[in-house]
Each structure stands twice: as C-alpha cells, then as structure tokens.
Amino acid sequence: MSTADVTSSTNDQKYEIAHLKLVPKRHIGRMIAAAIVLLILAAIVRAFSVGQIEWSYVRDFLFAPAILDGLKSTLIMTVAAMGLGIILGVVIAIMRVSGNPVLSSIAIGYVWIFRGAPALLQLMIWFNLALIFPTMGIPGLFEFRTVDIMTPFVAAMLGLGISQGAYTSEVVRSGLLSVDSGQYEAARAIGMTQFKMLRRIVLPQAMRVMVPPIGNEVIGMVKLTSLASVIQYSEILHNAQIIYFANTRVLELLLVACFWYLVVVTLLSIGQYYIERYFGRGSKSITASM
C-alpha cells in the first residue's frame, strides 16, 4: 500500500460522520443556577405558608366593603392625578419647545422644582397649606378658607398631579422631538396652521413614542397614590391600615392591598398593549405582522 492510498482511506473515514446525531452542549452552570433559584423560591413559599399568617383573614377581607371602597378611591385618584399630570405635561412641553424664552425658562424651572422635591413632601405641603394661607381666592371676587378646599383628595391630586406633570412633560417633549422635521414641513406645505399640524400630524406620531413611558407612569401612579394614605385620603392602603389598627392583622391586610395593586397593574399592562398597537399603525413592526 502506498502512502497515497493510506491518506485517502483515512480521509474517507473522516468524512463518514455526517449522519451522526448532533448533541447540544450541556449547560451545567445554568442547571445549577436554576436549581438554586428554585430552592430559594420554595423556601420563601414555605416560609409564608408555615409563618403566622392567618390566610382566612386575607380571604375574608379581600372583598370587604372598606377594601373595595379604598380600591375605588385609588382608581379615582390615579385617573385624577394622571389626568392633571398629562395636561400639565403637554402644556409644559409645548412651553419648553416654543421659541419664547420666558415660557421655556418657566417650563425648565417647573420641571426642576417639582421633579426635585419628593412627592410625599409635596403632598404634605399642599395638605398643610392652610398654615401659611388661611384663606385663598381673588380679593374682592371670592374667598375660601383653605382648610375647606384643601381636602385630602384635592391635596393628593395636586401633589401627585403636579409632580407627575414634571415627569410627563419630559416624555411629551421627547415625543415631539422624535417626529421628523420633514413631517412639520409637509404639514405646513399643505397649508396647515400650527395648531392643526400639532393635532393631526405631530401628536399622533409622537404618541407612538410617548405611549410606552406614559403607560409606565400610569402604573407608577397607581402605586404612588398609596402616599395619599399619609394625609388621610381613604385609598386602599389607608383603609387596610384602619382595619389592621383595629384587628392587629397587619400583614394579612397588607397582602390584601398588595393583591389589588397587582390586579390593577396587570389590567393596565394589558390595556397598554392594545393602545401601543393602535398608535403603532403604519410603522414597520406592525406591518410585518400583517
């Protein structure tokens, strides 16, 4: 046998493995990590089940009228504060991008102050405003005692809504900036006024960029309303607290409140998906799935 023959026969064997089964690499590290995490999770679940939690209290109070009333107040406050936040956000953002130096400086100052101070502190300032302004109004026209109008609801709505407006204005501004300058020009070229251009062309396109972060902020706001419990607004956490002050079942009632927050946030997340899909119409990612 010549050397050439030897080489060719070993070569033939070498290439005869194409039919063999391909076995993926074993990820030992991943399996160990997963096992550890599952173990920890199991330990936590066990701790809660053997801990001194009276689950019957959780069940009984889940649909208690005081809790459901609190839930309703939480939702009302979310809508009111977020509504105020969005209105202020749009106004402040437009002031910021307007060419007017006074308006844009005021917008910058607004964001600086109300994004800078903690929301809880802002709530307390609104609630205690009567201490420095016993009465409010326009002299000679009308006047109120501050304690009469600055109810927990009003103070919470102002505190949460105004600080939210500072955040939302940045979202709106980034939405406005995301619209191509060619869109502004095309809108002007068909004879649109500034207002019509914003309403018909710019905002609908900006919405696509704005909806995901605003959805996030709405979800954040649902939870932020719990701060209003501090100023006696009877939202769900406040009502849960009142109940556990009476029956001392602290953790049970906190879990009840936690359950409802999760329900609301889940529903909002689903709603956000559909809103995003609506404003994404015409964009590439949507058309690909059509």
Binding site: Q183, A186, A189, I190, P204, Q205, R281, G282, S283
Partner: peptide, 14 residues
C-alpha cells in the same frame, strides 16, 4: 402652492 420633497415626507400614520 403644492410641494414635493426629496424624502417624500408622507404622513406615516395614514
């Protein structure tokens, strides 16, 4: 006055 742009500038949401 009508205008046609280099980059079309159609309204993408319509």
């Amino acid at each position: 006055v009508g205008m046609v742009f280099q980059r079309f500038n159609l309204f993408p949401h319509m």
